[in-house]
Design a protein around this nucleic acid. Structure first.
Length: 288
DNA sequence: CCAGACGTTGTT
DNA sequence: GTCTGG
DNA sequence: CCAGACGTTGTT
DNA sequence: GTCTGG
């Protein structure tokens, strides 16, 4: 690990007059939830079948996550995509890695560069996947104080899907291990107030294209990443209980404030529309 | 040619 | 400060 | 992503 | 396996 750490420092800096200076300003998604029923998720992803799974409110790196793969309609009778769901460890391990313990945890892949990186190139070309979720979490770093957690949730009750990359590797015991990472891009709109990076979400109408690695190469899906916007979400500040992975019950999602501090999308939130409470939040309402 | 990295986020 | 575990 | 460890010798 | 640095 010392090697990697040293390398990172070296690559991000350049020696000028003997002093290390940053070459460029280094401007995510590290936690999410999935508590829709398996039936809803299967319908959402057009899966023929799906195993049971429990509701999870605090999914963290290294844990198993549900992913959907496949998608080319190679069955003549298929009007629904030929997809399947399975579990993968969150933290992608490239197939050529000999000792995963000496390799950093790749929970995110930068969408801007993933197609050219050794670690992601093959997955970007051959093993794109979707990662269903019902909410995700982001932390806002404040000056010196503790970071504040925020919940990003769709304004209308439906799951969404992250753009994911999947890889299969062989563990020391000879067993196959499937791993996955979430694709990220530069944050824009309201999410940018929380964090510089955000996960890429794929619209339902584009599931097929993202998953179909036979007919669409990385260039053929680049627009899904570049044009990604986290639309139709509201962003609410939540308590710090989410910080601890052990805290995994629904209460960790309870808002701290009365209203969402931000909303993404074209209109005011459903919640505000229902209650008619515009008030202080309206001027903070920003559109993507 | 061989050796060694292969990544993201964040920080200052 | 840095690494590991979840 | 955050939280929590970060070590050795020896013993049960 | 493939790329970069030396």
């Amino acid at each position: 690990m010392a090697l990697h750490r040293g390398t990172r420092v070296y690559r991000n800096h350049q020696l000028l007059d003997g002093a290390a200076v940053a070459l460029f300003p280094l401007p995510m998604c590290g936690r999410f939830a999935l508590h829709a029923s398996p039936e809803i998720v299967a319908e959402f992803l057009s899966l023929d079948e799906i195993d049971e799974f429990p509701p999870r409110y605090n999914i963290a790196p290294t844990q198993p996550i549900l992913i959907a793969i496949g998608g080319h309609q190679d069955r003549p009778d298929a009007n629904r995509a030929n997809r399947s769901a399975q579990l993968a460890r969150w933290g992608l391990i490239p197939s050529w890695v000999k000792d995963a313990s000496k390799f950093p945890l790749l929970i995110n892949a930068r969408g801007e560069t993933a197609a050219t990186k050794n670690s992601f190139r093959a997955a970007m070309k051959y093993r794109r996947c979707l990662i269903p979720a019902t909410e995700f979490y982001e932390w806002r770093r404040t000056g010196g104080g503790p970071s504040e957690p925020f919940l990003f949730r769709p304004k209308f009750g439906r799951p969404f899907a992250f753009a994911g990359l999947m890889e299969t590797t062989i563990d020391p015991d000879g067993g196959e291990i499937d791993t996955a990472a979430i694709v990220t891009t530069k944050a824009s709109g309201p999410p940018a107030d929380i964090h510089d990076r955000m996960p890429v979400a794929i619209e339902e109408g584009e599931f097929e294209r993202w998953l179909d690695c036979r007919d669409y190469n990385p260039a053929g899906v680049a627009d899904l990443i570049a044009g990604s916007a986290v639309r139709g979400f509201e962003i609410v500040r939540i308590g710090t209980a989410v910080n601890k992975v052990m805290n995994a019950d629904p209460s960790i999602q309870e808002p701290v404030d009365e209203h969402p501090i931000r909303s993404t999308g074209e209109t005011k939130t459903a919640r505000e529309a229902d209650t008619g409470s515009h008030s202080d939040d309206v001027d903070q309402l920003k559109l993507i």
